[in-house]
Amino acid sequence: MTDIPALKLKNQICHSLYSATNALIRAYRPLLDQLGLTYAQYLVMLALWDEDNVIIKNLVQRTRFDAGTLTPILKRLESKQLLTIAKSSNDSRQKVIVLTPQGKKLAECAKKTPDNITSQIAMSQEDAKQLKALAEQLYSLINTNLLGEIEQG
């Protein structure tokens, strides 16, 4: 046993974030099952419903999935006929992701998902916005520090 506060599980921000993320994903699961999507596929579809006909590099930036993670998700969504992956007409080295009519139509089915999640969580809009802002700030700080280390290393 240790008396070092920094090594206490109850003091770890990472544990709280990990637990909250897992709980949130579990809450999404029944809603996404109705859409035939996993949580990761849902995030990709959200990005594409926001902006369609994008190169993979753009989708990597917007979803924050690395290309190795994103590629199998895209292939699975393509096999579900929700999107197509084609060579860019501007640069044959680039792949363009385009929603199919079925993929566009799925947005209509998914439009109530955010409200359904919100109704399950007794959190004020103000707290939710603050939580989102703090999570974005944490992501930015960690990402900036990691990029700085890579550039120095």
Rank of each mutant, 00 (worst) to 15 (best):
Met1Val: 12
Thr2Pro: 00
Asp3Ala: 14
Asp3Ser: 13
Ala6Arg: 04
Leu9Cys: 01
Asn11Ala: 10
Gln12Pro: 01
Leu17Cys: 07
Ala23Gly: 03
Tyr28Val: 03
Arg29His: 12
Pro30His: 13
Pro30Trp: 13
Leu32Phe: 12
Asp33Val: 03
Asp33Ala: 13
Asp33Thr: 10
Gln34Val: 13
Gln34Glu: 15
Leu35Gln: 09
Gly36Pro: 10
Leu37Tyr: 08
Thr38Asn: 04
Tyr39His: 14
Ala40Trp: 00
Tyr42Asp: 09
Leu43Tyr: 00
Val44Leu: 07
Trp49Thr: 06
Lys57Asn: 05
Lys57Met: 05
Val60Gly: 02
Val60Pro: 00
Val60Phe: 02
Gln61Ser: 14
Gln61Cys: 08
Gln61Phe: 10
Thr63Lys: 07
Phe65Pro: 02
Phe65Asp: 03
Thr69Trp: 02
Leu74Ala: 06
Arg76Asp: 05
Leu77Ile: 04
Leu83Lys: 02
Leu83Ala: 04
Thr84Met: 10
Ala86Thr: 15
Lys87Met: 00
Ser88Leu: 07
Asn90Cys: 00
Asn90Pro: 00
Ile97Asn: 01
Leu99Glu: 02
Gly103Phe: 03
Gly103Asp: 03
Lys105Cys: 06
Glu108His: 14
Cys109Pro: 00
Lys112His: 05
Thr113Gln: 04
Pro114Asp: 04
Asn116Asp: 12
Thr118Asn: 06
Ile121Pro: 00
Ser124Met: 08
Glu126Gly: 00
Ala128Met: 13
Lys132Asp: 13
Lys132Gly: 01
Leu134Trp: 06
Glu136Pro: 01
Gln137Val: 08
Leu138Met: 13
Leu138Gly: 01
Leu141Val: 11
Asn143Glu: 13
Asn145Val: 02
Asn145Phe: 07
Leu147Gly: 03
Leu147Val: 12
Gly148Pro: 04
Glu149His: 10
Glu149Pro: 01
Glu151Gly: 04
Glu151Trp: 11
Gly153Gln: 15
